[in-house]
Structures are given as C-alpha cells and as structure tokens.
Amino acid sequence: MLIDTVLFYIFAVMVLIGAILTITRRSAVHSAISLIVSLLGVAGLYLLQQAEFLFAVQIVLYIGGIMVLFLFVIMLVNLDQAAKERQFSGGWMVALIAIGAAGAGIGALLWRGFGSLHIPAPVLEGTPAGLGNTEQVADSLFSTYLLPFEIASILLLVAVVGSVIMAKKRI
C-alpha cells in the first residue's frame, strides 16, 4: 500500500507542477512541454487506478496526438513576437475571485476532512473475474455505451471537416 501512496504523491506533484508551469511560462513551447509533464502525471494516476487502457490512450492520443498538434501550430504561427509581449490579460480580477472562491472551497474541504464528502461506499458486486481492463472497457463501450460511441464518430467527422475548412487557404 505504501508504494501506492508514495507514487500517488509523486504523480500528483508532477500533475500540479506541470499545470502551474503550463499557465505561467512565457513561451508557448515551454508551456507545451510542461503540459506534457502534467499529462504524464495524469497517465501515471490512471495506472495507479488500474485503468491500463486509459493509460495507453492518454500516452498515444493525448501526448502523441494532441500535443503534436499543439506544437505544430506553435511552429506554424510564429510566436516569437508573442513571447516578448505582455503575458497576462486583464482577466486577473475574475481569476482572483475564482481562486478565492475555489480556494475557500478546498480549504473548507480539507478542514472538515474528506469524510464530509459522504462519498458513497459502493456495494461491490464483484468484478467480472478473469476480464482484463481493456476487455471491461470494450464490453461497456460496445454494449451500454454503443450510442455515444456512434455519436462520437460523427463528432470526429465534424472535427475533421471543420479543421480542414478552417485551415485550408481555399477550398
């Protein structure tokens, strides 16, 4: 158990430090790299929670796909200019309020203890023995969640069409 606890804290620190660096770095490339660190931390947490399939998805899709897309755009639109300019917008007032409100919430949570959340202790019906994580996910995805899966296919089609329309010079 101890090793799990230690790993949790290691990954959690990775996630948080990565995230803070993402939103504070001046250069977009640095931000992107920090984001990768943060996403890796999240992937680690997936492993801790026995979501191996999600771990793979996170590495391949997120870090391999989305981040490449980001880096590609950062290279494409020249950001040298942006790096020299003012870094933060005028939204800091709203941000301050958001931080204050959320901080108060988290503070109250920590002060009253996690028990106050009343997270229900589930009645474990026993996991389908002998099924690996990927099989479980697949089982769920293609039976109960068949419909959203189909809708997601249209969603991705729209995303492809949309990014092509937007990014091409002339159709």
Binding site: Y145, L147, P148, I151, A152, I154, L155, V158
Partner: peptide, 11 residues
C-alpha cells in the same frame, strides 16, 4: 444519459 448528453452537446 450523461455521456449521450455530453457527446450530443459537443457535437
């Protein structure tokens, strides 16, 4: 269903 609603919304 939350997932259907969410994906529908995003679509």
């Amino acid at each position: 269903d939350l997932i259907t609603l969410y994906i529908g919304l995003e679509l």
